[in-house]
């Protein structure tokens, strides 16, 4: 399979990438926990965490992309995004997950679970967004 698509994902998903939390602590991307995101958002002056529930996953074995539909925030706003199948999302209590965890592990070395309908992903919004 072509690997060119991997170039479209940012480098910080590569296993071993160093991530700085809001309190200054450094962690490897594969070691991040749900609490790291929650605590960083609490410290942040302009960002807050939203819960985004996966409602639909559309993809195929022949496509590099998947269409994900989320219900975002307390209003459960419907948001659809097209992503590379290897794009990881952080799921509450579950960790890194993607539509094709085998591909994510192969390309980035990042241990991943299968992203499924019902999973609640961490997403961000602006605190001052009215």
């Amino acid at each position: 399979p072509p690997v060119a698509a991997s170039n479209q994902l940012p480098p910080y998903f590569m296993k071993g990438s160093i991530i700085q939390l809001a309190n200054g602590e450094l962690k490897r991307v594969e070691d991040l926990k749900t609490e790291d995101f929650i605590q960083s958002a609490e410290i942040s002056s302009d960002l807050k965490i939203d819960s985004s529930t996966v409602e639909r996953v559309e993809g195929s074995h022949t496509s590099s992309f998947a269409l994900l539909q989320f219900a975002v925030g307390e209003h459960r706003t419907q948001v659809s995004v097209e992503v590379l199948v290897e794009h990881p999302f952080f799921v509450f209590g579950k960790g890194w997950s993607s539509c094709c965890p085998e591909r994510t592990s192969q390309l980035f070395g990042l241990p991943c679970s299968k992203l499924s309908v019902g999973d609640v992903c961490i997403s961000l919004t602006l605190k001052n967004l009215k």
């Binding site: 991530i19 991040l32 942040s44 948001v79 992903c121 961000l124 919004t125």
Partner: peptide
């Protein structure tokens, strides 16, 4: 002399998507 290579450090929020659309008032 071998200069030490700097290791990139990424902020935590780069890993998290912004999914919330603008909320109407």
């Amino acid at each position: 002399n071998v200069e030490p290579r700097s290791v990139p450090v990424f902020p935590w929020h780069s890993l998290v998507p912004f999914l919330a659309p603008s909320q109407p008032d």
